[in-house]
Amino acid sequence: MGGQPSIQGDVYSFGVLILEMFTGKRPTNELFGGNVTLHSYTKSALPERVLDIADESILHMGLRVGFVSADEVR
């Protein structure tokens, strides 16, 4: 708001968008508050628990287009 647009701001916004799409959660979700953010939530699951935070629709979509299932990854 009122600041100068920058490449860094665009990259940050794109990263947030990717995290929203992957987790199915918005940065304003009630899960986040205090020290917990969308970024820290995602980072805490990497790499061992990444499928635990993935949006279920992504996993099901992968099955429809021929990607490996979550069970095959584990």
Rank of each mutant, 00 (worst) to 15 (best):
D52K: 14
I53C: 02
G3N: 14
P47A: 10
Q4R: 10
P27Y: 03
G3S: 11
T37M: 03
M21A: 15
G62F: 11
I7E: 09
L38M: 04
A70P: 07
P5C: 03
R64G: 05
V65N: 15
L46W: 02
F32H: 02
V68W: 11
K25V: 03
Q8W: 10
L63D: 10
N29T: 10
T42H: 10
G66V: 01
A54E: 01
K43R: 06
V50P: 03
K25R: 08
H60S: 12
H39G: 05
G24W: 03
G66E: 04
V36T: 05
L31P: 00
G15Y: 02
S40E: 04
M61Y: 07
E72L: 13
D55S: 13
Y12G: 08
G62H: 01
V73I: 15
E72M: 07
T23C: 00
A45V: 04
Q4K: 10
V68A: 11
M61E: 12
T37W: 02
D71W: 10
V68H: 07
Y12C: 06
S69L: 12
Q8P: 04
V73K: 02
T42P: 02
Y12I: 08
T23I: 03
M61F: 15
E48Q: 14
S69Y: 07
M1V: 13
E20F: 00
H60L: 13
I58M: 03
L59V: 09
V16F: 01
G66Y: 08
I53M: 00
S44K: 06
R26H: 04
Y41V: 00
G62R: 11
F14T: 14
E20L: 02
Q4M: 08
G3L: 12
V11A: 11
Y41C: 00
V11R: 06
Q8K: 05
G34N: 04
G2D: 07
